[in-house]
Amino acid sequence: MVDMNVNLAAANKIEDPAYSAPVKLGVSDLTIRYGGTPALSGVNLEVREHEIFGIIGPANAGKTSFLKTLNRMDTFNTNMSVEGEILFNGLNVQNLKNIYALRSRIGVVFPLPVGLPLTIYENVALSPRLRGIRRKSELDVIVERCLSRAALWDEVKDRLDSLGSLLSGGQQQRLTIARALSQEPDLLMLDEFSIAVDPVTTMRIEDVLKELKHDMTIILVTNLVQQARRLADRTAFFLEGECVEVGITEDLFTGEVQDQRTRDYVEGKFG
């Protein structure tokens, strides 16, 4: 009886107009294998435009593999096989003619910051240059805008010519975000971005994400359940290669869950 009520409540909220925006990313029956061993199986979920979609779960839940299949980074790993359907903007990413174009619309931020061994300016100008933008004035605008939105401009504006790979960890992570923004993505994916970043920078980046939500869809994979609670509109819980449940974030944290394991995880009983 109790379970029924919970389900109803969750269902009601999903039908709330705030969460009925168009579907950005539709995943159905997704199974990922590494050399035959499943890393993730039978995932069904939808990510809507302009939401922050959180994915929580302990290590080896399949979260990173999930992100890799979304922008087809699985092509670099011959060991990795993907089944199921992933629709991005309504197109099946499995049979695209130009996967580079797909990737260029999806910004990715890694657990460990990667400042490319180029100048700070060129780190951010790289993606526009790849798109064919050559005019210095145009690039200047993009570089300043992206660095500002990533809350890094004030710190680096006087040394745009120094190497991005030699910035501090927190700065490099914001540089990575600025670089992702320079792609002008419709989807931004962050994979445990705060692992190598100090708490102050983490809070700054979280504020940035809240702002960015208005311009793009965000998938936030995090090992910090409280971070998901602070930021995500809806959250999926992954555990050992399975998507246990998807729900409105606040519901997961107030105990309105469909699966006991979700409650145990957000309450810190394991993981």
């Binding site: 197109l91 130009n98 619309r105 805008r145 419709d186 793009m216």
Partner: peptide
């Protein structure tokens, strides 16, 4: 218009092979 990310996704067909694709091959 380039500043609004949505415009880009709406206006260009992103699944087409371009020069860079052929150069890479």
């Amino acid at each position: 218009s380039a500043i609004n990310p949505l415009n880009r996704s709406m206006t260009t067909d992103f699944d087409s092979r371009n020069m860079d694709w052929y150069i890479d091959k």
